[in-house]
Design a protein around this nucleic acid. Structure first.
Lengths: 245, 245
DNA sequence: GCTCTTGAATAAGTACTACCAATGGGTGTT
DNA sequence: AACACCCATTGGTAGTACTTATTCAAGAGC
């Protein structure tokens, strides 16, 4: 019987997905995003060709992708220059993941969590108006499962349901842009768990808040949903300040 | 004397930037993003090769970029499939621009403006704490220039200063993610002006609000900055509802 | 007779190589 | 300081061989 693939596996798969060029990307991307090749560094195609043992074509495809992410700029007679950090497409989930795996993880985590503080409360408020009955039910179930995983101190299960919860809220907002931030939130939550920038056991306070958000959305109480979600986010921000000052 | 290149020119340049593959991208990207090739459509490399009169390599490089944006998925034996809209990287400035040029422009504009409503007020609040004296001065100057352009009914000048104003606020917030949303806001403002989803003359009310935001930031009054910016954004949202219901 | 497995045919992307074109930074000359 | 030239480096094309998913048909088993 074929084992069900986990979200993690899925992510891994379409990251290093079969293609050779993805393999190069999966090595070169993190190397740049983590500051191993600081801005201004010049890479040359032949060099990369040799380093990764692949053909020019493959390197060029990988470079094109990095170029689209504004991580590098390729110019004739010069080579492939690493761009200034401020130019990077930091909303690209791949870039987020690469940076989260790198050195200034906690700074990164903080700016992402600040973004969550701005976006998620508004999304929760909208969700209270727009969520379908199905989504309301999902939220209730997920909050309950978070509570159960919390009691069992099962971090992995907690993470899965936490991610799912926030994703449903963002989707239920009915706003496409918010919905797409589900991936970003997922990266943040996964990142802080994987890199141990989190309490060893889930915060019972946070669990309660999630349950209450689910209730508020089901009760169509937009202001409550918004302020409860704000509490969750500032809680996450505070937690970050304690654990990674 | 070499003419200073406008922001518009610069954008055009690194969009269709010299490279042949960028030319393909600049045609294929919008075609997909605007729904001309709806999700599920299958393209084949040879087909694109013929359509654009370029070599295989070039097409593949373009496809790689679209793949990184999650607009398409390339699979052996099947071809290049356009992905479901929900999978697209809608935060990529290029994707935003392409969609804004397409059919459901006003829906798109609305979801982006909702995003602004969530983010910009928070950014303004942070900016009130973190803006440098230089940034405070810039904001004051830009607000004044907006007022002047408004009085002169010079839409083009108004747009430039409006974009610059919001960009400075987002940068002054000190949060990297917010700062990068400057491009998104720029696309939105440009988009609504270019596609005439805007009053023919700038709203005097809005101008006043910008001036007051600049004052609040200079006075280090975070709550005022936040609520004033919120007024600007909900104003923009309301304006959209009136002009593109 | 129906379903499930097996395997061959095939179509499409994937990867490598070799070669020429274009361009722009560096250098040296006036 | 202006200009012309050179050549390193990326950009683009063509052809070829490889890999793998899908499809479909034939046969085995029920």
């Amino acid at each position: 019987m074929p084992q069900q693939e986990s979200p993690r596996d899925r992510r891994e798969r379409d990251e290093t997905g079969g293609g050779l060029h993805s393999r190069v990307l999966a090595e070169l991307g993190p190397a740049i995003a983590s500051g191993e090749h600081p801005p201004g560094t010049v890479l040359r195609i032949d060099e990369l060709e040799a380093r990764y043992g692949v053909s020019r074509t493959v390197v060029r495809e990988a470079v094109r992708v990095l170029e689209a992410m504004h991580l590098v700029e390729s110019r004739r007679r010069v080579g492939i220059t690493v761009r200034r950090t401020e130019e990077w497409n930091v909303f690209d989930p791949a870039v987020i993941r690469w940076r989260l795996a790198g050195a200034d993880r906690s700074r990164q985590l903080k700016s992402l969590t600040t973004l969550r503080t701005a976006v998620e409360p508004v999304a929760a408020g909208l969700a209270a108006d727009a969520a379908t009955p199905g989504q309301c039910r999902e939220l209730t179930v997920l909050a309950a499962e978070m509570a159960a995983a919390g009691r069992a101190a099962d971090l992995a299960a907690y993470l899965v349901h936490d991610i799912a919860f926030h994703r449903v809220v963002l989707e239920a907002s009915g706003n496409e842009m918010f919905a797409r931030l589900g991936d970003v939130v997922a990266e943040v939550l996964t990142g802080r768990t994987e890199h141990h920038v989190m309490f060893t056991a889930p915060d019972p306070e946070a669990v309660t808040l999630h349950v209450r958000v689910a209730e508020a959305v089901r009760a169509r109480d937009a202001v409550a949903a918004e302020s409860l979600m704000r509490e969750i986010c500032v809680g996450a921000l505070r937690e970050l300040d304690i654990l990674a000052p």
